[in-house]
Each structure stands twice: as C-alpha cells, then as structure tokens.
Nucleic acid binder design. Structure first.
Length: 645
RNA sequence: GCCGAAGUAGCUCAGGGGUAGAGCAGCUCACUCGUAAUGAGCAGGUCAGGGGUUCAAAUCCCCUCUUCGGCUCCA
C-alpha cells in the first residue's frame, strides 16, 4: 500500500502508507520541515504527526496566514491549560484564533485582573519551556460528554456538534492532549508547545457565551502570537502606529473637532479647521450628486410618530430611535434616524408618470440614532451624524441601469478621496423577506451585473440581505490595510408598498416604483474619521484646512509675508502667515507637526526679488522660487478631483 | 446595557493619609533668526463629581459620571 501526493509544482510522489506530514516535509527539505506547522491535503489540514491520505499536498509554514492561525490556536490551548491549572474549579468555553491573535473564554467566578494576566503569561512560558507534545485522539460524542462532564460549555459544544455534523467525520469528535490538559479541537496543532516562539496576552474583557446578552457573561483573555519574536515586535509596532493615527487623538490635536463630556456622549463639535474639510467634502458630494443626476431635497429633524409607524421603523428600528416627544396635546413626534420616509412623502406629493422616472432625491441629513453607550467610538460611531442619503425611485426596467450608475457613483466618490482598493459584499434574499420573487431575482442579478461591470472583487453573502431587499456594501482598504465598510446601495421593495406609492405607466395603469437607497460616504462623520486615519492627519492639498503656511524669517518680513498670503488667497488657496515671535525653525516645526502640505519661507532675498522659499510635503526645499511660479504649483496641487484639465 | 481598565494644569505624565509637581502648550520680556524646538520670567488645579472613614483624603471605602478596550468571528 502506498499514498500518492501531488506537490504544488505539479510533480507526483509516492510514499509508504502511514507516512506523516513531517516525514514528507523532511523529504522535501530540512528548512521546509523546520518551518512547517502542518500540512494540507486536498484542502483538509493535518497535524505533522498524522498519517496522510493521497491527494494534493501543500506544506503550511509558520510565516503564512494559515500557519499563524495554527500557531495562535495552539497558543489559545496553552493559555487555557495555564488558566485551568492556576484556578481550580474554573471552566472554559471557546478559544479560537482570530485576526492577529486569539482569545479564550473562561468562567473563573470573577474577571481577570492585570496580575492574573501576568501570572497566566508566566505559566504559559513554563508550558512552552516544557515542550509538551500535542497529541490528537478521537472520541465518540458519548465519550466526549464523559470526559468533559465537569465543563458545561464543552458539554453544550459536544451536543451541538452531535446535532449538526461538521467536517463529515460522522460521529467522531477530535480532541487534543498535552500533558494532563485535554480540549476539544478540530485541529490541527503545532507538534509541541515548544514551537510557540512568541506570544503576548493583550487584554482581558467580558464576552457573552455565544455572543448573546441573555447568556452568562464569561471572562475573555485576548492574546497575540507570531512565528518569531521579530514578527511579534513588528505587530506591536503596527498597533502603536495605528494608535498614533487614531482619529480621536488626531482630531483634537489638529484642532479639527472635539467631543467634550459637557456636550453628551456620541455627539461631536466641528471646529473651524475640521469645518473646512467637512465643507469641502460636502461640496464635493453635492457636485458629484449633480453630475450623476440627483436632485437635492431637505427634510426636518422631526416627524410624527405615525410616519415612522407607516415606514415600519417603529416595528423594526425603534430600539435605535430616541423616545417620543409630546406636542400639540398628545401628538407624538420622533427624531429622525433616517430620511427615507420623508423622501417618500416628497415623491408622493403629486401624481407621478412613468416619464418622470427615475426620480433621484438626495440629502445631507442630520440624523440621530440611539447607539448603546458601549459602542460609541469617536466619529466612527456617533449618536448624531450626517448621512449622505439618497433615494431613487424607478421603474423595473430601469433597475439595471440605475444600479450600475449608483455603483459607478460610489466608486468615483471613493477614488476621489484616495482609496484604491475595494471589496464588495452582495447580500442576497434572507429566509424571511417581503416583495415578489421576480423583483428579488431581477435586483440580485442587476446588483451582481453592476459589480462585474465595475470589475471590483466581491463575495456573495447568501441570505444576508435586509428583509426588504438585497444590497451591496462597499469596503475600502486604508493606508495600513484595515477594512472599513463605507458605501451602501440597497434595493427596497417594502417602503413603496408601505406608503402605497405609484406612478402611471404608458397604458395608464398604476404601477409600484422600485426604490434604491444609497449612501456614498455613509456618515460624513465616520467617513471623515476614516479619512483622517487613512492620511494620518496629513490630508492631500485639496482637503487640507491650511494649504500653505507663510513664514517670515524676521519681523521686517511680516508685511511681505502677508502680501504673499493675500496673493495666495486671491488665487483661491487657503494660506496663513505665522507672525508669532519665534524662530524660523520653531515656526517650520509647527507647520510640519500641523501637517500643513506647503511651507513658504520669506526673507531678505525674497522681499528684494519677489520670490519665496518653497517646500511641499515629500519634496525638497527650494530657494528663490518666483511668486507666480509658487502660486501655480500650489493651485495645480490643490485642484479638485475630477476637475483636472 | 454588561465585563474589565482608567480619570491629577490645555496636552503627556509623576506623586500616593500631613502646603499640588515636571515637560510641552499659553502669557510677558529679551533675541530678529533662511528650513523640525533661542533664552529668561510669569501664570495655570475643587487631583472627574458626590458621600463616607480620619485630627487630617488627590491618596483608603462606597455611589455616580465620563473615557478607553471587549461583548458575530462556532470545539
């Protein structure tokens, strides 16, 4: 008996039956065997110590995402082993590898303190030093129930595995043992605990069993693990970098916005410099909306509760809405969390003909949502924010073109702000939904066609759509590789129905229009927060609140500096002079740390010759640049996206 | 909301039952300077708020508020 393995290079190799992954890796090369943490055959992962079946082989090494996943999973086991050993009577729930790390949920009858974390880390180091082998074995569900009889969460897990069979191994549950510690696990694992080279526990937190608030709360410990000390340090360094970009830190530092406690949680104040950027963003939004054929509307912050009843918001969204306000002797009003019902009322304000469609209504609307106190996060998750909300009403035969146009619009918007990498989710019909089947089919196909046309990567989130229609969510990748959900395009079959809106077709028949919700930025506040982090505060010229700082070398150059500023301003640039009593070095430093893109220094030579010292972000300093030349360079660097000639 | 951590000057932080500290920022004065911090002086605080213990609380205890991290990622 022998097995046949197909290598990634296309070559085929035979081994004796019972050959393990490690032996195969060693036969290929000792460096590979050293870096290997597991192997996969036909996509199924195997421990290095397991006998392999025939199939197409790849060796999983420690510095790949798959390899790190295994390292982290093993780290989670070692942490659980440490915790169970340190706290008698404690029990454990689940402990998966996650992006950049791992966690494990425990019940030790209390939360973990920083001292606990330190003790656990120390115990883990001992377990790693002992280099205990991870040993895989299989159990029947009944055996597993017996082994884990004292651990109620594991019992629940065993029972759920029994019900809904995973990975086809019918009725068999795998587990791993190292020393006296045993845990359920699909695997694979590192060959032994000694292979865990670099780990760090990062924080303790509470988490509900199965993520449900109604379940008991467990104590979770997060950690991170890497293939080497160096990789761990690089990761910790990246975390620090991300912290430096935090918009909640940069915003107040650069005097863009603040969120003082006196104002209220989840609410923000835009300062003048942030206000400039916001105005530019909104101007750009309006410019693009006009170009893509939208009309602007405005609606109030409040409406009768009845309106939200009709729209369905009070049945489906009431939790996120502020409580009612009583007016006019008992009449209840609600603050708006969205603008759609109001835009529907505008549509319904007169009879509509098929010739009128599509009608595209757009608004930059202040909306208020009652986010739970724990989820508020600076500008990214606020209770009061500005939604760039639009609603398109169209005929069924227009859905295709409209969706393609909306996606084109969204991508244009995102590209204009400097984002280049996109990923989309197409969320399709859930089990419970409204609207007729034909419409769902048309809309889902149209959305997918639009994605193909736009040529951006997407995945289909089967059944993840809203009950009222399918949608596309567009995610961007920022400068340090983080994914953010930004824009959304949603088809809505429910609202036109709820409000009974219609139009008259060519045969004089009343027809129901299809409605498309879309948000390009989503929330202006959130979009701004993402931009701020993406650029780490160093906005490109067209967005920078101050585009050029003019610095006089000495007091006698102040008048000339102001004249230069006046000239820049007359050419539409945002410039200011720094006339403070400080040295040139100090003023330049101030301009740099304020992330002003252009620094213009003027001294005796410049006054005499009508020139400036000129330096733009990322470029070398130049002396004696003519004022007209400097102005040209600035204005061409500051040109708005889409306005380049 | 729940679990954990934190709250001292505008910012970053030290102090830890006995008169409230530093650096930066600010103000004043001197310096007038050519590409990332000139020097000196001054001012700045109900130590988040409230209650308690104590001769004495920023410090110890309790409550509240706010901020931060986490609460989908299925053995």
């Amino acid at each position: 008996m022998s097995i046949h393995l197909l290598y990634p290079d296309g070559s085929s190799h035979s081994f004796e039956d019972g050959t393990t992954g490690l032996e195969v890796a060693e036969s290929i090369g000792s460096r590979l065997a050293k870096a290997a943490v597991a192997v996969s055959v036909d996509g199924a992962e195997y421990d290095l110590s397991r006998a392999l079946p025939s199939g197409s082989l790849s060796v999983i090494t420690d510095s790949t995402e798959a390899g790190r996943h295994i390292i982290r999973h093993s780290a989670a086991h070692i942490m659980a082993q440490a915790v169970l050993g340190l706290y008698p009577g404690s029990t454990f729930a689940i402990g998966p590898a996650i992006e950049n790390g791992f966690y494990y949920d425990f019940d030790i009858g209390r939360g973990f303190t920083p001292d606990d974390i330190e003790a656990i880390e120390a115990r883990m180091a001992e377990i790693v030093a002992a280099d205990q082998p991870f040993e895989r074995f299989e159990l029947t569900p009944d055996e597993a129930l017996e082994v884990f009889a004292d651990h109620k969460f594991k019992v629940e897990i065993v029972k759920s595995v029994d019900d809904s069979e995973v990975d086809g191994s019918s009725g068999v549950i795998s587990a791993y043992r190292n020393d006296a510690f045993v845990d359920l696990c699909r695997g694979p694992h590192l060959p032994s605990t000694g292979r865990l080279k670099a780990f760090k526990l990062t924080r303790a937190a509470g988490a509900y069993w199965r993520g449900d608030e109604n379940n008991p709360q467990l104590a979770r410990i997060y950690g991170t693990a890497w293939e080497s000390k160096k990789a761990l340090e690089e990761y910790l360094h990246r975390l620090e970098e991300a912290e430096l970009r935090d918009h909640r830190k940069l915003g107040p530092e650069l005097d863009l916005f603040s969120s003082p406690p006196e104002l209220g949680s989840g609410l923000v104040l835009w300062h003048p410099k942030g206000g400039v950027i916001r105005k530019i963003m909104e101007d750009h939004s309006r410019r693009l909306h006009e170009r893509f054929g939208f009309d602007f509307v405005f609606s109030p912050h409040l409406a009768k509760a009845d309106l939200w009843e009709t729209s369905g918001h009070l049945s489906f969204y009431a939790e996120n809405m502020y409580p009612g306000i009583e007016m006019d002797g008992g009449q209840e009003y609600r603050v708006k969390p969205m603008s759609c019902p109001m835009h529907v009322l505008i549509y319904r304000s007169r009879g509509r003909s098929y010739r009128d469609l599509p009608i595209r209504l757009s608004e930059l609307a202040a909306v208020y949502r009652n986010e739970r106190s724990g989820v508020i996060h600076g500008m990214m998750r606020a209770r009061g924010f500005t939604q760039d909300d639009s609603h398109t009403f169209c005929r069924r035969d227009q859905v295709d073109d409209e969706l393609a146009m909306h996606l084109d619009f969204v991508l244009t918007w995102l590209r204009d702000f400097g984002f280049t990498e996109f990923e989309a989710d197409l969320s399709t019909q859930p089990e419970k939904s409204v609207g007729d089947q034909e419409l769902w089919t048309i809309a889902e196909r149209s959305l997918e066609d639009a994605l193909k046309l736009a040529d951006i990567p997407y995945r289909i989130a089967e059944g993840d759509g809203a009950f009222y229609g399918p949608k596309i969510d567009v995610h961007i990748k920022d400068a340090i590789g983080r994914r953010w959900q930004m824009s959304t395009i949603q088809v809505d079959f429910a609202l036109p129905e709820n409000f009974g809106i219609d139009y008259v077709d060519a045969e004089n028949q009343r027809q129901r229009p299809v409605m498309i919700h879309s948000a390009k930025a989503g929330s202006i506040e959130r979009f701004f927060g993402v931009l701020l982090e993406h650029y780490a505060g160093a906005f490109p010229m067209w967005l920078a609140p101050v585009q050029a700082e003019v610095i006089p070398v000495a007091d006698r150059h102040n008048d000339y500096a102001e004249a230069v500023v006046g000239h820049f301003k007359s050419m539409g640039l945002r410039a200011e002079a720094d006339l403070a009593d400080a040295t040139v070095g100090e003023k330049i430093r101030r301009a740099m740390t304020s992330k002003i893109p252009a620094v213009v220094v003027v001294g005796d030579d410049d006054v005499a010759n009508g020139t400036v010292g000129f330096r733009m972000r990322g470029l070398d300093e130049e002396r004696g640049v003519g004022l007209a030349d400097a102005t040209d360079r600035l204005t061409s660097a500051a040109v708005l996206p889409g306005e380049e000639t």
